[in-house]
Amino acid sequence: MKLKWEDKSIQTPLSRARGLGSARDGSTHWLHQRVTAIANLILMPWLIWSVVNMQGWTHADVSTWLQNPINAILMILATISVFYHAALGCQVVVEDYIHNEGFKFAKLIGMKLFFTACTVACVFSIVKIALG
């Protein structure tokens, strides 16, 4: 069965061909969530293991550990991937459960700024420690 609007769409043919819908990003959000999930699947077990077993280490121990390029690179990848994944996930939760438009808007913006700040703080710290 054909729907009424299919014949006389207000979408331009180009917009229809792109298939990105009214939010303009189509399935990008969904896809990025999955891609970062796969990255996390590799990086997070390593991160949990490291952070849990770092208990009781001295400052010098942790610094030496992070000066190893492999650890530094994995840590940078892990923090970028995990905070991007977190930002995408929290966005969905806020969109689903918060119905006041103003509050929702504030939360979405605040969250994005917060996770960006977290990522920058982590990456800068790792680089600073790794380069001594």
Binding site: V51, M54, V82, A86, C118, I129
Partner: peptide
């Protein structure tokens, strides 16, 4: 919870730096 909890990792890294 993890989004909030991962701040522990931020704390760890920033503190070491």
């Amino acid at each position: 919870a993890l989004s909030i909890g991962t701040i522990m990792v931020v704390w760890l890294l920033v503190a070491v730096a």
